[in-house]
């Protein structure tokens, strides 16, 4: 093999390494800006992990991403869960003012839940909402 051919092989290997390095750099940058997919919301909902849904909603909203219609029902579910959690807390504490605010938030969230409306019952069960 001539010297030129050996150098050509070295160049090809270095190009592959550069491609790998570019992919690594891009992945590192994208990792820092992680948002949650619909699939993550779905799996959390299936395992009744509504707190996780609320956390993922806050992250997506904070980054101003994933605002498509497909996500809005999950966000409404998160809003209902959080409102219901605090509604129960304030009701038992006798804090009617705050409870009323949360009640309105719950009603608003239910109107946005669409196909996920049946989840309301499950949340009420877990949080023991009367």
């Amino acid at each position: 093999m001539s010297k030129r051919h050996k150098l050509d092989i070295v160049i090809m290997i270095l190009c592959l390494i550069l491609l790998f390095a570019l992919c690594f750099a891009i992945m590192q940058f994208r990792e820092d800006e992680y948002t949650y997919s619909e699939r993550s919301f779905y799996y959390s909902m299936c395992s009744d992990n509504y707190d996780n849904i609320a956390s993922m909603t806050r992250t997506n909203r904070a980054q101003g991403k994933k605002n498509q219609a497909a996500y809005q029902e999950y966000y409404a579910l998160a809003d209902y869960y959080e409102a219901a959690l605090y509604y129960n807390i304030y009701t038992k504490a006798g804090d009617t003012e705050r409870a009323e605010i949360r009640k309105k938030a719950m009603e608003d969230a239910v109107s946005r839940m669409g196909t996920l409306s049946p989840q309301k019952q499950r949340i009420d069960e877990i949080l023991k909402i009367e």
Partner: peptide
């Protein structure tokens, strides 16, 4: 270029 790219990736945060 490879060294610069890896350096940038490692310091992405």
């Amino acid at each position: 270029m490879i060294m610069v790219t890896f350096l940038i990736g490692a310091n992405s945060w």
